[in-house]
Amino acid sequence: MSYFGNIAKGIKTLLTGMSVTGNYFLHSRKGAITQQYPDNRETLKMFDRFRGEVVMPHDENNEHTCTGCQKCEIACPNGSIEIIWDRQLDPETGKKKKMIDKHIYHLGMCTMCGLCIEACPTDAILWAQNFENSVYDRSYLTKVLNKPGSKVKAGIED
């Protein structure tokens, strides 16, 4: 009697589905995921995995961990990253060494694919969770990620 079996199975699966959505309905008060954005601007905290823009964190001594290896520049599929570098004399060892001058990031071109961050061997660049990225002139979207006067953290290249 698979005919009636089918009916019973159909009803059962429909009720299962309805119980799932009904459960969501009853808990919608607590779990509403809507962010009423301009109202909660002060308190809104974006989720950790949100991809706002690529940033380069600096520590208190104004040091970052970017070695200028250019892996991110190569990894970027649309050329949003440009690294201007130079060989300079390392004051400690006296040898010539590759150092970044500017790590240029074009936010306006970035597709938020995350490949540069994957590629970076020293985790020098990360996702920031900021979301208010609109500006009045697109030249503001071209950012230099390393702060002026910053240098690479000692020992990171070893």
């Binding site: 959505t21 309905f25 808990h27 919608s28 509403a32 995921i33 809507t34 009423q36």
Partner: peptide
């Protein structure tokens, strides 16, 4: 409204 509550919206 009901649709919103089913989808955990407001």
């Amino acid at each position: 409204k009901v649709a919103a509550w089913f989808q955990l919206r407001i």
